[in-house]
Amino acid sequence: MPLYNRLKEYRAKLGVNQAEMGSLAGVSRQTISLIERGDYSPSVTLALKLAAICEATVEDIFWYEEDK
């Protein structure tokens, strides 16, 4: 999947686990885990929510790269 992210790093900075991050964003722990592993590309709404929680921009956390 060509969407990469630094969500795990930002979560570590906040000092919360996946369940707590999920609860802050109103999603399940599994969703956070799937995003971090790159197995799921979040919707724009969720990406904006996560960026707001991490006090960063969406581009800081997510970036797109074509598959080589």
Binding site: V27, S28, Q30, P42
Partner: peptide
């Protein structure tokens, strides 16, 4: 269900 759970 949230978006990823729905997709799964």
């Amino acid at each position: 269900m949230d978006e990823a759970t729905k997709m799964i």
